[in-house]
Amino acid sequence: MEHADVAVIGAGQSGLAAAHALSQQRLRPVVLEASGRAAGSWPKYYDSLTLFSPARYSSLPGMAFPGADPDRYPHRDEVVAYLSAYADRLDADIRTGRRVTAVRQAGAGFEVEIEGGGRLAARAVVAASGSFTRPHRPALPGLEGFTGTVLHAAQYRHPEPFAGQRIVVVGAGNSAVQIATELARFATVTLAGRNPVKFARQRILGRDLHFWLRRTGLDIAPLGRLVRTPPTQLVIDDGHYSAALAAGRPDRRPVFTGADGARLLWPDGSREKVDSVLLATGYRAHLPYLTGLEGALDDSGLPRHAEGIATRVPGLTFVGLEWQRSLSSNSLRGVGRDAARIARRLAARLAGW
Rank of each mutant, 00 (worst) to 15 (best):
G164F: 07
L279T: 05
V125L: 10
Q233F: 06
A351L: 03
G67D: 04
V6H: 05
P250G: 14
V255Q: 05
S175C: 13
A163M: 11
A180R: 01
A121S: 14
W212Y: 09
E322F: 06
A244I: 10
L226P: 00
H152G: 09
L213T: 08
A68R: 10
V274E: 08
A244K: 07
F132Y: 14
P54G: 01
V103W: 00
G117R: 14
S300C: 12
T181P: 02
R253Y: 05
V112K: 02
R345H: 14
R344L: 09
R119W: 03
T291S: 14
R201A: 15
I236M: 09
W353Y: 11
V8I: 08
I342N: 05
G239S: 09
D275C: 12
A64D: 09
I9F: 06
G36K: 08
P196H: 06
F199Y: 09
P29G: 10
Q202S: 14
I204T: 12
R249H: 14
G12Q: 01
A200W: 02
Y73E: 03
R37D: 12
L140K: 06
T50L: 03
R345A: 15
A246Q: 14
V8E: 07
Q233L: 15
V227L: 15
V168N: 12
P230K: 12
V30A: 09
L60K: 03
D338L: 06
D275I: 08
A172V: 12
R345G: 11
P61W: 01
L350R: 04
V313S: 05
V112S: 03
Q105T: 11
L297M: 10
L22I: 07
R214A: 14
P61K: 01
D69C: 08
T311M: 03
I167Q: 13
T149C: 13
H3A: 14
H75R: 15
P288A: 01
D338G: 11
R333V: 10
A184Y: 03
S331W: 02
S326G: 05
Y283T: 06
A243C: 10
H286N: 03
L321D: 04
Q165C: 11
V126C: 07
W353K: 08
R312Q: 10
G239Y: 06
A92F: 10
A21E: 02
G15V: 03
A68P: 08
S41M: 14
T147M: 11
G118Q: 14
D298L: 08
G145V: 10
L321Y: 04
A221V: 07
R137K: 07
P250F: 11
G217W: 05
A128S: 09
V274I: 15
G352F: 02
